[in-house]
Simulated scan of single mutants.
Amino acid sequence: MKTDGIRAALIDGKAIAARMRTETAAEAAELAALGWQPRLVSITVGDGAASEVYVRNQQRTAENAGVEFEARTYPETISMEQLVGVLQGLNADPRVNGIIIQRPLPAHIPVKTLQKAVHPLKDVEGMHPASIGNIVYNDLALGPCTAVAAVEILKTLPLKIEGLDVTVIGHSEIVGKPIAFLLMSLGATVTVCHHMTRSVAMHSRAADAVFVAVGKPGLVTGDMLKPGAALIDIGINRVDGKTVGDADFDSCAKVAGWLTPVPGGVGPVTVATLMKNAVLATRMQMAHYRAEYALTDV
């Protein structure tokens, strides 16, 4: 539904996520029948108020997707060595199929070190260096959830990705760069813009699709878009008590052909992707255990 002056068709992330959850639940039930019930463990360190909403949303989505979910909270005083020991225990537990590390973390716990401690087969967030590195080789096993979700949204649009001109604004290790590699593997021509790019608008105006993930509200405006282009807004910012993206919604909606709202766009699909990864991780672990421990003829 459009209103006067609005050109863009709003992309319903909640509807996309609902379809994904239905598919995930069917796969989870199939695995459970084989004795492999998908199960996630969430790790929060210190005051959980900052991540409470995310944990609650993840738990609700997990239940709807047929994935068991356990939330654990550890004191802020826990040492890095103790926390790594916790993760090693979870890595070794065949009843745990995925590990989620909630942010923010205390200053003495470097998130990258913690991500490296999660076994790649249980890295449902797709944050382990091996998970991200595999994308370069077109081996998308457990990819970074936000990046995968953003690309999945583009796939739902009536656009041929092969040969599509795409501009990615933002080049973080877990969103911007993986998006670029994922799109290149699908045949798109990708330009990546960052804080040293001389003219972001020059690149974005030439693109058939624009992804933005910077964390700066109002960064992308309507005059920076090609008429009819798709705009995937990944930013999450709080402005005057409201959650907004990195795009100036009003001006972009008058130019873009398709636009993700914030909230309700990439966010729900990201959480659904996390559950999809949980089921995929479970299937990969089942195959691994069978290969390692299966009885063979003597």
Rank of each mutant, 00 (worst) to 15 (best):
V298I: 15
I11Q: 05
G228N: 06
P94G: 07
A247Q: 06
P263Q: 04
E30Q: 15
V175N: 03
Q37M: 13
Q102I: 02
A209E: 06
P217V: 09
A17D: 08
L295Y: 00
T156W: 01
S131A: 08
I43Q: 00
A230T: 07
G5T: 08
E76I: 05
A130N: 10
D223Y: 02
S79K: 06
Y137A: 15
E76P: 04
M224V: 12
A213R: 06
Q115L: 11
G35C: 07
R39F: 02
A147E: 09
M275I: 12
P38Y: 04
G222E: 11
K2G: 03
I6L: 04
G222W: 06
C252N: 04
A33M: 07
L183M: 12
V151M: 06
I179D: 03
L182G: 04
H171F: 12
H171G: 12
I100V: 13
C145H: 06
V96H: 00
G241Y: 13
P110L: 06
I99S: 00
N97W: 02
V244W: 06
F69Y: 15
H194M: 11
V166Q: 05
I135Q: 02
T296M: 01
G222M: 11
I6F: 01
R198W: 06
L259G: 03
V266G: 07
K226Y: 05
T197P: 03
R7K: 14
D240M: 09
Q285L: 15
T77Q: 10
C193V: 11
T3Q: 09
R21L: 15
G170I: 13
V111E: 12
E23H: 10
I169C: 13
N91C: 07
M20Y: 05
T61K: 07
R7T: 12
E292A: 14
G126S: 02
A272M: 11
N134E: 10
P104I: 03
V298L: 13
I174N: 07
K155C: 13
V279N: 01
G163W: 11
M286L: 15
P144G: 04
P106S: 09
L121K: 05
